[in-house]
């Protein structure tokens, strides 16, 4: 399994975002995308998920050229409005199962892993931001998709909650062997999560293998040096 972006060009309101770019994602990878705001991180993610049409080039997923979103490339957003307000926590997570006719993961186990067991019958508006994002993540993996596309999912959360969820995502990544593409504006988060990091600059995309061994210690000197090095490269 792999995703290949081939000769992709994309304009947005006459501004060239990408011109003839080529990228590849392998099965089981954890890729983080960083860059200045407005540079096109989210657009790139949308292109990978086929939510956004390209002006030129093609997206190849599982050896096939794809034009429409599908259930194997699930997207998770930053905004809380991605949950269905009229469904409970449990119903939100189960929602994709009904519409894909799949058995999916064991919901009880998943609710436990997400620490949502105690709130399973509450409605989204009764939850904290962190809980809402956990529900969104739960919903996104219940159908065992091959790829998870995460668009700054923790961007609106406080630091403590954010660390919790970072651990959760890493756990799920290993546990369910999912490929993850993760957009963030926080370089430290990118280094913590990704095994490869893409830096989006105006005229280029820099691909870097993450040299820091897991488990990563954000306080360690080499970690912080690497983060500093990356920040210098963001233009």
């Amino acid at each position: 399994m792999s995703i290949v972006l081939k000769n992709i060009s994309k304009k947005y309101e006459n501004k060239i975002l990408f011109e003839n770019i080529n990228l590849e994602i392998d099965s089981g990878e954890f890729i983080t995308i960083v860059g200045k705001s407005g540079i096109g991180k989210s657009t790139l993610l949308s292109i990978i998920g086929s939510f956004e049409k390209v002006d030129d080039g093609e997206v190849i997923f599982n050896e096939k050229s794809v034009k429409k979103p599908d259930r194997n490339r699930i997207i998770v957003f930053q905004t809380f409005d991605q949950l269905l307000p009229w469904k409970t926590v449990r119903e939100n997570i189960e929602f994709p199962l009904i519409h894909t006719n799949s058995n999916g993961l064991d919901i009880e186990k998943l609710l436990d892993e997400l620490d949502l067991k105690s709130v399973e019958n509450l409605y989204p508006h009764q939850l904290s931001g962190g809980m809402k994002q956990r529900v969104a993540i739960g919903r996104s993996i219940i159908t065992k998709p091959q790829v998870l596309l995460m668009d700054e999912p923790f961007g609106s959360l406080d630091v403590g909650t954010r660390q919790n969820l970072q651990r959760l995502v890493l756990f799920l990544w290993k546990e369910y062997n999912i490929t993850i593409v993760f957009v963030t504006h926080d370089v430290s988060e990118a280094v913590l999560l990704g095994n490869r990091i893409w830096i989006l600059n105006e005229s280029e995309i820099i691909e870097i293998e993450n040299p820091i061994m897991r488990p990563r210690d954000q306080m360690a000197a080499n970690y912080q040096m690497f983060v500093g090095e990356l920040i210098k490269n963001i233009k």
Binding site: G49, P69, I75, F77, D81, Q82
Partner: peptide
């Protein structure tokens, strides 16, 4: 209407 909700539907090929 939240665009994200509509995209959730697209994601499951509805």
């Amino acid at each position: 209407f939240p665009k994200t909700l509509s995209m959730v539907g697209d994601n499951y090929e509805m």
